[in-house]
Nucleic acid binder design. Structure first.
Length: 657
RNA sequence: GCCCAGAUAGCUCAGUCGGCAGAGCAUUUCACUCGUAAUGAAAAGGUCGAGGGUUCGAUUCCCUCUCUGGGCUCCA
């Protein structure tokens, strides 16, 4: 038999006997590689390790510790879960089971409408472990559609996919299940379980094992709200036990940082059920932090040449008719109020009102760019199931700005906006940013192609000038104009979409906004929508999770707590407190009715940046014992030195901007 | 809106196979006066989310609603 020649990614070549597989190849390179291998890339396409290699192929081995490798592990684990479910629940229908970030899911329909319980997860996990132990091979087969339909005679969801594929109606949702082409590929592990799948898979189930089933949820078949509701089981799967444990640990950490939990623990705000869903009340400490955020934002806007405006919470329906919100967005608006002189709605947005301000008198080109700013509270009817703490809420405040400018000012304005946005976000402790540029949806847009092109180019040029990494999302723009969204990465690596800069060619048209140009003629301005926090409430929630409740000194509701060691030190403690207050520090005092250790513990749990202990030595010397958050205790610190230190620290935190 | 799971003291939770409701922490009071993450004792604290049904009797079983959590869908 003739040998075959295989090229490796580094350009080198290997000669193997005909019929050799990627497994053979990996073994010939090294036993470590063979052990880590889960699949291969053959001539650019992912393939099973066990598939015979064609002569002259370029082959790369996919190892379990790569993103692609984990993807294969997760997908294979999803198959094992489906097999376990069909064993435990005879008659279960399985639909799709892709790999996702950190894991996988699989959707099922159980006979008689039975649903999975939490307890079922443990049973399924145990069955999966048995399948892994049995080390069943994953065997690939390719079948004509007619035969595949027979194989899946009892599986209507699989049949539906096969039918869609064979009639050419497959879409991206089917892609994980099935490749394109005439034949349908299936994977079989033991005669009892077969699944429709494009692959690749690990050679056998014994290669798997570091997984955990996480939760049960409902999910629509093909994401269609009108379609049947299936039962989805989510799991996580990793290449090593350590990686799995690390992931579970990360999940726990994220849970500890949950802003809803921290908001209660730190007495910042609450969502009383009497108030109604998705509505929050701010307690004094939360309100104080919010005020600090807002004050900082206001000052930056003053420095940035913004003009402050205020607009009411209600508006006549005519306004939203003009703006188009009643046509496009009525479902997201609260129901109308009928009053003697018309119909009124709570505002879902501030922009129409800002347009009225622009339009209140004749505008000159000399006034542009005109930057209007408002911390504007809006009300949106979010569907009950979508509410989520501060992240998705029904009444919230936007740090909303609308900038009216000439087209020739667009690029500079966007570039300076980008600078402004990032500078403000840095002051709040974010330093990793990425952006998305959303471009025209050719099916749905208003305005000339020409202006879309120029505005998109302006956004892109601004991103490049700023040197910000960005992705282009083709066709993702709103109908009224292209936009930039800015994501930040938080302390535990999660990304949050916060700021947005959007061009709008629609509202100036609808409100017939005009300015008088240098040429004496009337021109239509371009409008930019811009929010930095997005929603003050949501931004507060993100900050709370980012800092795990330990706000930096400049934002902490209480910056320092004075603790007299014993009652005899109360008078001196009060003097210290008065001094701190005079210096503009936010400090409080807890009397010595409890033991010192206990009071320190309470202060630490409240995540106060500085605990100041004063006793005999301090009374005598006019000093403090300083116990900083996350630091070592320092004795005998002069009060002046402490005040200076806090001032310097706050200044340094804000200088990050 | 849809699927699933919940709602018991301020918080975290246990419990009642249908018969007077429990713990820890927090709160209040008393004692202790203490130098860096929990001193001790006592008291007080509940329409068992709301409404309806079944029952001699419902916090417990059933129904509806409200709110919450996990998802799905949605987010101009």
């Amino acid at each position: 038999m003739a040998d075959i020649t295989i090229s490796l990614p580094d350009g080198s070549q290997r000669t193997l006997p005909a019929g050799a597989t990627a497994t053979t190849l990996a073994q010939s390179i090294g036993s470590r590689l063979a052990k880590a291998a889960v699949a291969a890339v053959v001539n650019g396409a992912e393939a099973d390790l066990g598939a015979p290699l064609p002569d002259g192929a370029t082959v790369a081995i996919i190892t379990a510790d790569s993103d692609e490798g984990r993807h294969v592990l997760r997908h294979s684990t999803a198959h094992v879960m489906a097999q376990a479910v069909t064993r435990l629940f005879p008659g279960a229908k399985y639909s799709i089971g892709p790999a996702i970030n950190d894991g996988f899911y699989y959707d099922f329909e159980l006979p008689g409408g039975r649903t999975f319980t939490e307890a079922d997860l443990a049973t399924i996990e145990a069955e999966m472990a048995a399948i892994v132990k049995a080390d069943q091979p994953f065997e690939r087969a390719e079948l004509p559609a007619a035969e595949a339909l027979e194989v899946f005679a009892a599986q209507p969801y699989k049949r539906e996919i096969i039918e869609r594929v064979s009639t050419g109606a497959a879409d991206s949702e089917d892609a994980g299940e099935i490749g394109s082409g005439e034949t349908i590929s299936v994977y079989r592990n033991t005669p009892e379980f077969v699944d429709l799948c494009r692959g690749p898979h690990v050679p056998s189930t014994g290669r798997l094992g570091h997984f955990k089933l996480m939760k049960v949820a409902g999910a629509y078949w093909r994401g269609n709200e009108k379609g049947p509701m299936l039962q989805r089981i989510y799991g996580t799967a990793w290449d090593t036990k350590a990686a799995l444990e690390e992931h579970l640990h990360r999940m726990e950490e994220a849970e500890k940082r949950d802003h809803r939990k921290l908001a209660v623990e730190l007495d910042l705000l609450s969502f009383p059920s009497q108030l109604g869903g998705g509505l929050a009340v701010w307690h004094p400490k939360g309100a104080l932090v919010r005020k600090l955020m807002e004050d900082y934002s206001r000052q930056r806007h003053i420095d940035g040449d913004y003009q402050f405006v205020f607009t009411p919470h209600l508006a006549n329906a005519n306004l939203f008719q003009t703006s188009g919100h009643l046509d496009f967005y009525k479902d997201g608006m609260y129901p109308p109020m009928e009053m003697d002189n018309g119909t009124y709605y709570p505002k879902p947005m501030n922009c129409p009102m800002h347009c009225l301000i622009f339009d209140s008198r004749q505008r000159s080109y000399r006034e542009l760019p005109l930057r209007l700013f408002e911390l504007g509270t809006v009300y949106r009817y979010e569907r009950a199931g979508t509410l989520h703490g501060l992240m998705r809420i029904r009444g919230f405040t936007q740090d909303d700005s609308h900038i009216y400018c000439r087209e020739d000012q667009l690029q500079d304005e966007i570039a300076s906006l980008l600078d402004f946005v990032m500078s403000v976000l840095r002051a709040f402790g974010f330093d990793e940013f990425t952006a998305n540029l959303s471009t025209k949806d050719p099916q749905k847009y208003v305005g000339d192609d020409d202006i879309w092109d120029r505005a998109t180019a302006a956004l892109q040029a601004a991103l490049e000038k700023y040197g910000l990494a960005y992705k282009v999302k083709e066709g993702d723009a709103a109908f009224y104009g292209p936009k930039i969204d800015i994501d930040v990465k938080d302390a535990i690596g999660r990304t949050w979409q916060l700021s947005t800069i959007q061009c709008d060619f629609n509202l100036p048209e609808r409100f017939a906004l005009e300015y008088v140009g240098a040429d004496g003629n009337r021109h239509r301005p371009i409008m930019l929508h811009r929010a930095l926090f997005g929603s003050v409430e949501r931004f507060f929630g993100v900050l709370l999770e980012h800092y795990a409740g330990a706000f930096p000194t400049w934002l902490a509701p209480v910056q320092a707590r004075v603790l007299p060691v014993a009652e005899g030190h109360q008078a001196y403690a009060e003097q210290v407190l008065a001094r701190l207050a005079k210096e503009g520090l936010r400090a409080d005092l807890v009397e010595a009715t409890d033991q010192l250790g206990r009071r320190i513990r309470t202060a630490k749990m409240e995540k106060i940046p500085y605990v100041l202990v004063v006793g005999d030595d301090d009374v005598a010397a006019g000093t403090l014992g300083v116990n900083p958050r996350g630091g070592e205790v320092e004795r005998g610190v002069a009060v002046d030195a402490f005040v200076q230190r806090v001032h310097d620290e706050v200044a340094a935190q804000l200088a990050m901007a």
